[in-house]
Simulated assay, not measured.
Amino acid sequence: MGVLTVSTVEIADHLVVRVGGECDMSVSDELAVALTAATASSPRTEVDLGALRFVDSSGLHVLVMAYHAAQSRRAVLYVTNAVGMVATVLELTGVGALLAPPSQDAR
Rank of each mutant, 00 (worst) to 15 (best):
R74V: 03
A38K: 07
P43S: 11
L49Q: 03
V9L: 12
S41Y: 07
T93Y: 11
L15E: 08
A87M: 06
V83C: 11
V64H: 00
A70K: 08
G84A: 09
A75F: 07
V79M: 01
L4T: 09
T39D: 03
E91S: 14
V17S: 05
T45P: 03
A32S: 09
L63K: 06
M65Y: 05
T80G: 03
L99I: 08
V95H: 05
F54D: 04
A40F: 09
C23G: 07
H68Q: 15
A100S: 14
L49K: 06
T93S: 13
L31Y: 05
E10D: 14
L15S: 10
R74P: 00
G94M: 11
G84Y: 04
V3K: 14
A100R: 13
G84C: 01
A40S: 15
T8F: 06
I11T: 15
T8S: 14
C23K: 03
D24Y: 01
D56F: 00
D105K: 10
T8N: 08
V47D: 03
P101L: 06
A12Q: 14
V17N: 04
E10G: 08
V17T: 04
E22G: 10
R18Y: 07
A82T: 01
M85P: 04
E22R: 05
D29W: 10
G20N: 11
V3M: 13
A66Y: 09
A51D: 14
E91C: 10
S57E: 12
D48A: 12
L35W: 01
N81Q: 09
T88K: 14
A100I: 08
T93P: 12
V47N: 04
L92Y: 07
A51T: 13
D56I: 01
S103T: 14
R73M: 10
L77E: 05
S28G: 05
R107C: 11
L60M: 04
A106W: 06
V55L: 11
V83R: 15
V86R: 05
L35V: 09
Q104W: 13
D29F: 09
T45Y: 01
V83I: 07
M85Y: 09
V95D: 08
A87P: 08
D56Y: 01
E10R: 15
T8W: 04
T39G: 02
A70V: 02
C23Q: 06
E30Q: 12
S57K: 06
Q104S: 15
A69N: 13
G21A: 05
A37S: 14
C23W: 05
L63N: 02
V17M: 07
H68T: 11
G59K: 00
T8M: 13
S103A: 10
Q104T: 15
S41N: 15
L98M: 11
E30G: 08
A12F: 13
L15G: 02
D48S: 09
V64A: 00
L31T: 00
F54R: 07
A87D: 10
D24L: 00
R107H: 13
H61Q: 12
Q71G: 12
M1R: 13
R73L: 06
L90V: 12
Q104C: 09
E10N: 11
D105S: 13
